[in-house]
Amino acid sequence: MDYETFIGTVSRRSRVPRDAAEALTRATLETLAERLTGGEADALASRLPKPLRAPLAAPAPEAEGFGLDEFVDRVSRRSGLSPHEARQGVRAELSTLHDAVHDDEFRPVPAQRRPAFGERVEARD
């Protein structure tokens, strides 16, 4: 999936304008990087278009353990979206990310291991 398609899909699924979808995408990937080990983030980033790789640079070698509410709070603060918009946006972003990479590459994402996060990627379109 190329960058324009990715952002367009996030915009449509989250029902936010394109510029907000770009901010949402960056915020979600940065927050996801905090939940991944460095190796997991690198592996996932390698499957994405170049403009989406930098936000997945893991800030630390170890993954942080935080839940869905904290994930959404971080995305909301980083993106400037309301908590409600961020919650919808996280679902749109993670489902688009899942579509963009193969299942075996998405499966290690810790967000997928927790039921609350798994629900975020179930609803598409």
Rank of each mutant, 00 (worst) to 15 (best):
R78M: 10
P55I: 14
R107T: 14
L36K: 03
T25I: 14
T96Y: 00
D19E: 12
A63C: 07
Q88E: 10
A23C: 06
P83W: 02
H84L: 14
L97Y: 01
L36H: 09
L44A: 07
T9Y: 00
G8Y: 01
R15P: 01
R87D: 11
R18N: 03
S14H: 06
S79Y: 05
T9E: 03
E64Q: 14
A41E: 09
F66H: 12
S14V: 06
T28I: 05
E4K: 12
E64K: 13
A20Q: 15
P17W: 08
V121F: 02
T96V: 02
A116S: 11
I7Y: 07
D69T: 07
S79M: 08
T31C: 10
R74I: 13
P110I: 09
T28F: 07
R35H: 12
V90R: 01
R91I: 00
D42E: 15
D125H: 11
D73F: 00
G89R: 08
A27I: 08
R18Y: 06
T28Y: 05
F6N: 00
V90M: 06
E22P: 03
T37L: 05
M1G: 04
T25P: 06
H102A: 15
E34K: 13
R15K: 12
G8M: 03
L56W: 04
P115K: 12
D19V: 03
S46A: 15
F106Q: 04
E62T: 12
V121Y: 02
D19S: 07
R13Y: 04
T25V: 14
D69P: 00
R87W: 02
L48F: 14
L44I: 08
P108G: 09
D73L: 00
L81D: 11
L52E: 07
V90P: 02
R77M: 04
G89D: 11
A21V: 09
R26Y: 05
A41P: 05
V16T: 04
E64N: 08
D2E: 13
S11L: 07
R113S: 14
R124A: 03
